[in-house]
Design a protein around this nucleic acid. Structure first.
Lengths: 157, 157
DNA sequence: ACCTAAAAGCAACCTTGTTGCAAAACAATT
DNA sequence: AATTGTTTTGCAACAAGGTTGCTTTTAGGT
């Protein structure tokens, strides 16, 4: 008989930890060290993460290749999505609503701060309708706004 | 005394060739083989070019490094501009109106065809106004639309 | 505790982009 | 047309980013 009680003690197993387990199981992924660690990073983070960030913060424990493969798995499963940026470095962010496998539907825009170089998903800002010339048909619209973010703007009056 | 007349014979010196020379001189760039060749590629092309395309089509004659440096020079001078794409491969296209040195003002949107994977500058479609949440301020808006282009759409009814 | 399928780790490799330096080409001048 | 000073090119070497094949380890069901 185990002390199941103690296992769920707030200080022992964090809320995030169990959330991570749930998310992985929901996507029928086995719960492994790297997946937990990397998913944790995304949950603890407001903005998006570049591969470099992830490698720096999780890579000391895990192989470069493992990080690549884990990210790819998450993208395939619709847990995270990629954000194209002007400087050509892929960034990843959690999908707010679970995207279906292999098909992401991110209708929100992305914001890159030129000061702190953080990337944010502005989930409340939907991509605008674009009127295209005759003959062109749109499947997907990607909007990336560069500017100064809330935090860097300075004290709000 | 030279036969200046023969030098401007249509078949000897093409229209594009002299256009290239003009453009380079206008930007106070010396007229060299690689610059002529690469600028020609852009003038002959409707859509945008990825670095890979350029290297394939001009790189047999020129060193990889030269292609990189030439593209960089053109971007600096405002002759071409970069287009970020979802697949993280930088593409380059001619600036329609000459951009000022070091400062590009491309207010048009970009279109990537998922069929032929060509990239077009839709110069007539301006980037929309984006309403950002409080605290965020926009400096630059980049819109990339994915879909089917005019050519791939098939016969127009 | 055991077994199998999946994931991690390792090594090697490829692509993409950069840097320093010597050789070559450009353009201005005589 | 030859000379000269500056710019550009080519080469080699390097660094970062990303991929592949294969072996070892691990997760999770029995």
């Amino acid at each position: 008989m185990l002390f199941l009680y103690s296992m769920s003690t707030p200080q022992t197993i964090s809320r995030i930890d169990s959330q991570v387990n749930e998310m992985l199981k929901k996507n029928s992924l086995s719960v492994t060290g790297s997946r937990k660690k990397i998913l944790q990073l995304f949950l603890e983070q407001t903005g998006a993460l570049a591969h470099g960030d992830i490698e720096k913060r999780a890579g000391e424990k895990f192989d470069r290749v493992t990080v690549y493969r884990t990210l790819q798995t998450f993208v395939d499963k619709g847990i995270i999505h990629t954000i194209p940026t002007a400087d050509n470095s892929i960034r990843y962010a959690l999908c707010k609503d679970q995207c279906s496998e292999g098909h992401h539907h991110d209708h929100h825009i992305h914001f890159v701060c030129t000061n702190c170089s953080n990337t944010y998903c502005l989930d409340d800002v939907v991509t605008p309708e674009i009127k295209l010339p005759k003959g062109y048909s749109a499947k997907h619209v990607e909007v990336v706004v560069e500017g100064i973010c809330k935090k860097c703007k300075g004290p709000v009056p």
